[in-house]
Design a protein around this nucleic acid. Structure first.
Lengths: 361, 361
DNA sequence: CTGAAAGCGCTAACAA
DNA sequence: TTGTTAGCGCTTTCAG
């Protein structure tokens, strides 16, 4: 444990023009962060000049010499502008709210990462609103934000929280959603991903496939189901069975066990899963039923999580550009905020053929 | 796409006492968020009274009737206080910075979750600083914070970024670290976890174990190595080989392949991994080398990630209370901020015996 | 019991 | 080229 704080933070000598007078209204000896005023005093200029110089809009209004003096003073004092004051003055915060279903789950962690990267490079901040679990505890997304917001980036997986977000008149970017009531959209070409899965399976001779559908009510999953059914039908195959599954390994295991258990008339030769978690469960189910993958049954995943290459056999799955989703979302929001017209983004996906799929037995 | 924003957000009729006079200095017809002043006007009281009532410190200073009137007005106007103004006035933000090595990875996602939960229940906010990747892009953690901070919660895995954090005189809580230079610590009983692993393995008859050590320079991993070596030695076994591995499935695969490849004098009968990712890799290595797990070689993980039960056989591993780490961290920070003495926290861990370990062959 | 007023640190219009 | 000034919305004495 270190000693009490506040002590020992040496405040540079006061360069006040009027001598050693301490800062106005300074009540105690508490060391405080230097303000623009302190910098002004140190540089021998007015506080407004400091604001201009440090705000980068001094060209033609302040002499280069004074500007440099100000910057030097700011540097030696360790000056950092007070964001709260700036925000209060400007009414804008350069902060966006990212609404996602908890960070647990690589996908949204990567989305966050992508959004943060472009945000910081544009001097923006991101605050997170983990929607689903926390929603009872934080009914108001804005309360959790702890600051006014300049915009919202929301994933489709939080339809409940979105109602609150609307009507605030804030710029709203939707990720992975068919929602039209927003200022911009960033989509992943989910349908194409499922088409690639279907094509891959059809090419391997499969005609009877089971679909493990994630038991989550969001656009992305309904889109997956539709695209799969459509692509299969067009290719002469069919979904012989759709089984809903909780979005977890255990959920996949249960559902796949039901699907693969002997007894049905038409048993599937391939199991298409909405998510790698489900696919991992399907692998376990197959193993427990004595079915070899891919020799006796093929399994596909979706998302290309770390899991996908951790299991054996490694999953044939669809890789989603999660990070780029976040980046594109933030870029779209910046465009809206700055009055530029954002064009809708649709990001491509890629099927990764690995060991969990093979020719129809 | 929806229509332009700002329109249609009906501002409730002005209840100004002096008639229809618009708000002072209102330049245009822009609809704005109602301020405390607006509420005051609507309730027929002064703005100061509004502040008192809504701040919950009105008892004995404002009559219950006026208080209720104020609350009613605030409600109908949809008033939400301006955080920036409050912050500027108070100098405190009720916001903490959480420094973690990117959110990718369930462990820190759960830590974040836990911290957010206790934070929000105490009207605190959390902002994230993903240290390792982002560090080149955001050299200054405080810049990324976009607001003044009331405190910092930092994980041991970001020793580089911590230098910057120190000396700010901010309350600092360290997670999972032996760092003494802070105001409070929250630790997971890593050593005990490794002791449990060692005891489990020794009980199964293993005497020669290999250690796949994560190639990450942080306290938690050195602690794991030490605890393992110590516990094994005390029980009559030994680490016959330590192999450093990149912290990924592929890294575990590589390292385990080197460790398990035939040819060594004393070949390990068990592989203890610093992390479930490595253990998953070890499983793959064993399979490729034709070694059956757990019949011919035992494998243990650490962390109990989702992965642990997705692979086959399921991993014997140590479950860490990630969420409680975050929660305890935030609680400790609250204590420090409020001047209460935080007591160091050491959270227990639990060995989960699953299918990847068995008797020595 | 309630109102008036100061001022947190900053930006931007306006003066000099 | 630089300084003065008026607030942004809120909390908090201090008067009434």
């Amino acid at each position: 444990m270190r000693a009490s704080r506040g002590e020992g933070v040496s405040v540079p000598a006061q360069h006040t023009r009027d001598g050693g007078t301490p800062r106005r209204h300074q009540t105690a000896a508490r060391s405080a962060r230097p303000t623009g005023h302190d910098v002004a005093d140190a540089a021998g200029v007015s506080q407004a000049t400091v604001s201009l110089v440090l705000g980068g809009k001094w060209e033609g209004r302040v002499s280069p010499r004074t500007a440099e003096a100000v910057r030097a003073a700011a540097r030696t004092l360790g000056y950092r502008p007070n964001l709260a004051a700036r925000t209060l003055r400007l009414g804008r915060t350069r902060t966006a709210l990212l609404v996602v279903p908890a960070l647990t789950g690589e996908f949204f962690a990567a989305v966050h990462q992508g959004a943060v990267e472009v945000a910081t490079s544009h001097d923006f901040g991101i605050v997170l609103y983990p929607s689903p679990e926390g929603i009872e505890k934080t009914p108001d997304p804005f309360a959790s934000a702890r600051t006014a917001l300049d915009g919202v980036i929301a994933s489709s997986m939080a339809p409940d929280a979105l109602a609150t977000l609307r009507g605030e008149g804030l710029p709203l970017v939707m990720l992975d959603s068919d929602e039209g009531d927003c200022d911009a959209t960033v989509n992943v070409d989910i349908a194409d991903g499922m088409r690639q899965v279907a094509a891959h399976l059809l090419a391997l001779g499969h005609r009877d496939v089971a679909h493990l559908a994630a038991d989550v009510d969001s656009w992305t999953f309904t889109a997956r189901a539709e695209a799969l059914a459509h692509a299969l039908r067009a290719g002469g195959g069919a979904v012989v069975r759709t089984e809903r599954a909780a979005l977890s390994v255990a959920g996949g295991l249960d559902a796949a066990t039901r699907v693969l258990a002997p007894g049905s008339a038409r048993t599937p030769t391939a199991v298409v899963c909405d998510d790698d978690l489900l696919a991992a469960g399907a692998l376990k189910a197959a193993r427990r039923l004595g079915l070899r993958v891919p020799e006796e049954v093929s399994v596909t995943g979706f998302d290309d999580l770390t899991l996908a290459t951790a299991v054996e056999p490694e999953l044939t799955t669809v890789a989603l550009p999660a990070q780029r989703v976040g980046a594109a979302g933030m870029e779209a929001l910046l465009a809206v905020v700055e009055g530029r017209p954002p064009r809708p983004v649709r990001l491509p996906v890629r099927l990764l053929e690995r060991g969990s799929t093979g020719p129809r037995p």
